[in-house]
């Protein structure tokens, strides 16, 4: 390889046609006059072909029924958990509202609980998404 040879990573991308047109042209011109890069390219191409030639084996049968879906069931549990949490917090807010006559206190308490509720809900949703994403 010479001083003005492209990075071999670029040669690999050239092989895959994954370069901008400008870069692709530039490397193409370089390849015409550099046998070292042509050899490198040929090596990469050979490896690529060997992997591409691996046979695609037939897949097993997939058995899916609605009952057979544990992640979904887990997801539903989390959904229920978040619904129950939401309901419990709403009840609590209502209870606090009844108990506290001073308007300022009620507003402050309401805000605090509301934020807590939002955080809990966000956590539940995160967990649900994790379960689904797995």
């Amino acid at each position: 390889m010479f001083r003005n040879c492209p990075d071999p990573i670029q040669l690999s991308a050239y092989l895959d046609g994954e370069l901008s047109e400008r870069r692709w042209l530039k490397i193409g011109l370089h390849l015409q006059k550099c046998s070292a890069c042509r050899d490198k390219l040929a090596e990469l191409e050979q490896v690529k072909k060997l992997v591409a030639q691996l046979p695609h084996r037939p897949a097993p049968e997939i058995r899916i029924t609605a009952q057979q879906s544990p992640p979904k069931a887990a997801g539903k549990r989390w959904l229920w958990a978040s619904c129950l949490t939401a309901a419990a917090v709403l009840l609590l807010v209502f209870f606090v509202h009844l108990r506290q006559p001073q308007a300022d206190d009620v507003a402050g308490e309401y805000l605090r609980i509301h934020r807590q509720y939002e955080q809990q809900l966000a956590e539940s949703i995160e967990l649900l998404e994790e379960v689904e994403a797995q």
Partner: peptide, 12 residues
């Protein structure tokens, strides 16, 4: 794993 992937895919 293939079986597992499609179960998860079904759920999502």
């Amino acid at each position: 794993l293939t079986q597992e992937v499609f179960l998860k895919a079904f759920a999502a």
